[in-house]
Design a protein around this nucleic acid. Structure first.
Lengths: 365, 365
DNA sequence: TTGAAAGCGGTACCAA
DNA sequence: TTGGTACCGCTTTCAA
């Protein structure tokens, strides 16, 4: 099995072994036209036997490729998408074999202007695109047109499972919901009702979270009753008002699961009612304003979706595919981190410090 | 700030701009002897202005380096160190710019034969070593001798903070302990006592875990009393007997924190006393036998130390340093994953399937 | 102190 | 269908 590759074999040694020229070896190895089938199979066999591994440094030196990749993400919610962009940038900077042209394209909200911006880029001949599908049914056709033109599309943060995207990277949304249910079920040991607050149930990720939450609550915490989900559509005002209404219910909900990173208005409403720490809250993601609330046990836990890691993984996949032709796993599910009071310090250095205004821009690496 | 690097600048462009030859440019850029200081500074300035980034593909093609790296790890506990080795292998396989010669060196237990094996490798001229320090004071001198000979040492899974190691990668042990304390403190709401079971308090990692556990228990769960720690020194028999003795105490401990991956004998003893699920247990790491116990709520949670990630990170650091000369962060702390019933499925695919017998071997990539 | 040139291992083009 | 060769950007050796 193991080849003592003390002297690495190249096309030269293959050519010598086959008694032909390196040009022919190259053509054979790459299925290029104009090679005698017999020669070809002989070359392939020798290459296999010698354990030939192409020297990627030499290849990339010669080809000197440029990869044009567009990153289509919403500006909101910045505490999530900014680090996601950082992850992409970091991964791009680590690419040694290729020059990567990154173009960041930014639209206001999930599902708000995303499609228009994508359409603008249709004829810009990108090699690949990283994007977050808001409402999948609205972007499926656009994704299809990209892939038909040879642009590989990777979904990040949410998925469009029925589209022609190459791959997707996101947290396992159903399990995120399950974790929230288990945590609330463990802490709340007597009967009570539980509310859930989400962004938009049409977004695949959001819907999955609530399905997972409901399922686990039913099995692991049957003493807790689930109140129908509230959709805020990323509107702080709506979220705030809905929470106020929630807290007026009789009986008052014992716990709340906020499945979007947009949790501040909800928490403000809870705080103003003096219920912080009394209503048990599981939030989503991490940003500066959440830190004191976790430290003071104002919220029970937050499920950190590791945006940086997601961006990095999505980009790495896309590049491996474009450069080496390696087909990625269609679905990669990142495990969310459960952030409690005790392990919060581990995550503080990943907080985006200053909420800088990010504008569309182009960076060449 | 941003250079429109549309045509990437190389030493050729610098040479042209300076009106000299590429040979001199190279010498100037690399601080090689025999360059007029004035010429040198002029070259550096131009390189800076042009935003010169060396073409790593060309460099590695020319240099065609081989990196010799030894991986010194214990065989036990395999469920931890096997995936750690996999992480190293994976990272090595992903190295494109260099040929990596990996040599795996394996000794029975942490702190048992590690030093002898290291000494054997002293004059083998490795470029780097990845190792787990058992008792730091015992390996510090060996680490020093390696670094003096120009072999970079990276510690993984535990640290030897006072040694001359280049860097260390491990979970944040103190916080692992804190998490365990917080979980037990949340679930156990009435008064009671808590036991801790560890490997060897001399191992940096183990000591830190217990310190973190004790500190957090005192502040976040003052209703729980801490029983003095039990050291098992990786002996299953000792662990089993100590647990039996523990369960005979009056009052019986309400919770147990097992801070080593060697938890099976403890759990067996608990099970045989019919106390599984009644005594709340927080374990460490993940392996096949633990899975049904988590699924059935026989244990509360396990703190997964992500051995695969640790191995990958340690190796990547070492290589970045050896290849690009980039000084790594001296200390990298990985956040442990809190595995509960609900998120267990996310981690099952990382389980080592068949406990294959691993022998020392050499693999060339 | 500097310049000129040979190659590292592939790819691609032109000639046979 | 094949062989020969220039070239990618950098390092290194030899000559000036």
């Amino acid at each position: 099995m193991s080849h003592s590759a003390l002297k690495s074999v190249g096309i030269k040694q293959i050519a010598a072994a086959a008694g032909i020229s390196i040009g022919t070896v190259d053509r054979a190895l790459h299925n290029r036209p104009g090679v005698n089938p017999k020669t070809r199979s002989r070359v392939l066999k020798i290459a296999e036997k010698l354990g030939y591994r192409p020297n990627l440094a030499a290849r990339s030196l010669k080809l000197n490729r440029r990869l044009r990749i567009a990153i289509h993400l919403p500006r909101q919610i910045a505490s999530f998408f900014d680090p996601l962009r950082d992850g992409v940038r970091e991964a791009a900077a680590a690419m040694h074999s290729v020059t990567v042209d990154l173009t960041f394209r930014t639209y206001p909200h999930l599902g708000q202007g995303d499609r228009k911006l994508l359409d603008e880029d249709l004829d810009r001949e990108y090699d690949g695109i990283v994007m977050t599908p808001g409402n999948p049914s609205q972007v499926e056709s656009t994704i299809r047109r990209f892939t038909e033109r040879g642009t590989a599309v990777v979904c990040v943060a949410s998925d469009a499972p029925r589209s022609t995207r190459l791959a997707s990277v996101s947290v396992d949304a159903a399990i995120s919901g399950s974790i929230a249910a288990e945590l609330l079920g463990t802490v709340l040991q007597s009967e009570g009702s539980i509310a859930t607050i989400t962004g938009d149930l049409n977004t695949f990720d959001h819907g999955e979270k609530l399905r997972g939450f409901a399922a686990t609550l039913a099995t692991m915490a049957p003493h807790l009753t689930l109140i129908p989900a509230i959709e805020t559509h990323d509107s702080p005002k709506k979220a705030y008002r809905a929470t106020l209404a929630l807290l007026k219910r009789k009986p008052r909900p014992a716990g709340i699961y906020i499945s979007t990173a947009n949790s501040l208005p909800v928490l403000r409403a809870i705080d103003e009612n003096g219920m912080l720490g009394r209503v048990k809250v599981v939030a989503t993601d991490l940003f500066a304003e959440l830190v004191p609330l976790i430290e003071s046990a104002g919220i029970l836990a937050t499920l950190y979706q590791r945006p940086y890691t997601q961006g990095k993984l999505a980009f790495e996949m896309l590049c491996r595919y474009l450069v080496e032709g390696i087909q990625p796993e269609p679905v990669t599910r990142v495990a969310p981190h459960i952030i409690l009071r005790s392990n919060l310090p581990l995550f503080l250095d990943r907080l985006p410090e200053s909420p800088t205004i990010s504008t569309d821009h182009n960076s060449s690496l």
